[in-house]
Simulated scan of single mutants.
Amino acid sequence: ITTHQNYKVTQQLGEGGQGTVLQAKAESSGDLVAIKLSELTTEVLIHSFMEEMRIVEHLKKSKAKNICEVHEMKIRHTSTATGGITVMKSYDCDLFTHAIENRKTFRKASAQKIFRQVCKGVKSLHRAGVVHMDLKPENILLDIDTQKVAICDFGSCVWMKNQRTNEVSGLRGTKEYYAPEIIESEYCYDPFKVDSFSLGVLLFILHTGAFPYSNNYHRCNYDAKELGFSSELANLLEALLQADPSERISVSEALKHPWLRQNRFKRYFVRVKKAM
């Protein structure tokens, strides 16, 4: 156990190519936090981290919903290395750990509740002019008891105010979750529709713990009937996972889809009936 400035580190939560994540306790309040330590070995990585700091500050001012609460971000220089430090609210786990590593899928009501929150978070990002570009289970944090979720990791985000057009180019995010146009397009593409495709992949994983494709071009090849999907769920997945981005629905349209609105209306009528 070590002390990291105002936090007492209690355990290591994970380690990967992008750095190390620690769990710690704030010495002043006793609250649990997660501390991500990133190795910034190049000028490109330093610039990317600084841009992420600006985006996080912008999202705080925009009061974006269902976004991980970041307490502080800073760059630390030593005589031998440069690193990024991100201190954020601690959650029980991420959806990757829950749905893929532990092979736990969600019941319909839970999947709807979780996915609705993620969609609201993405819509909130888009309203703030930010496109995530790396939506995946690892970047969705989960409180198991309340089933509240928060989107995290804004290192691949595009802040549209910095773009000359509403399109971007180049590879961003994680290749296993790329939308087809990122792989196939030689030119620019609509980043908002990339987030829509990622939401479709996430929704599929919530129900199956697997990817909806088994090819290098991410063209979906699953059988909805064989998987036991309802007609509403199958329709929403099809709309989000369209290979042609011009045919793919937006996150705002997804939130209006019948599959996401079912339980909301059910709870509403139950509540009204009890009140009467």
Rank of each mutant, 00 (worst) to 15 (best):
L135E: 07
K274I: 11
K104T: 10
G17C: 02
R103E: 12
Q112F: 08
V194M: 00
V44I: 15
H77N: 10
S156H: 12
I85T: 11
G155Y: 14
C119R: 02
Y222L: 11
T80G: 03
T146L: 04
I1K: 15
E232V: 02
K36T: 05
T20C: 08
V158G: 08
H218I: 05
I182E: 06
R261G: 03
S48A: 10
D143K: 12
K120Y: 08
G16R: 03
Y213S: 02
A26S: 13
W259R: 00
D94P: 01
N263H: 15
T105I: 01
V21N: 12
I144Y: 14
I140V: 09
E238A: 09
F192P: 00
N215D: 09
E72M: 02
P212C: 04
L45F: 11
K113H: 14
C188T: 08
H47G: 11
I183M: 06
S110I: 12
L206A: 00
V118F: 10
L142V: 06
K161R: 13
L22R: 10
F154L: 13
I1V: 08
V131W: 11
K108P: 04
V70D: 03
C220K: 07
S230G: 05
E226S: 06
K120P: 00
N102C: 04
S90F: 15
I1E: 15
P245E: 11
P212M: 04
I205H: 13
L233K: 00
S90L: 14
E51V: 00
K193P: 01
L240K: 00
L227K: 06
F211K: 01
V272R: 05
K63I: 13
Q5Y: 07
A239V: 02
V21K: 07
K89Y: 15
R264A: 11
M133L: 11
E232I: 06
R219P: 09
M73Q: 10
S48Q: 09
H207W: 15
R103Y: 13
Y189M: 08
T86I: 10
D92E: 05
R267A: 07
K8F: 08
L255Y: 13
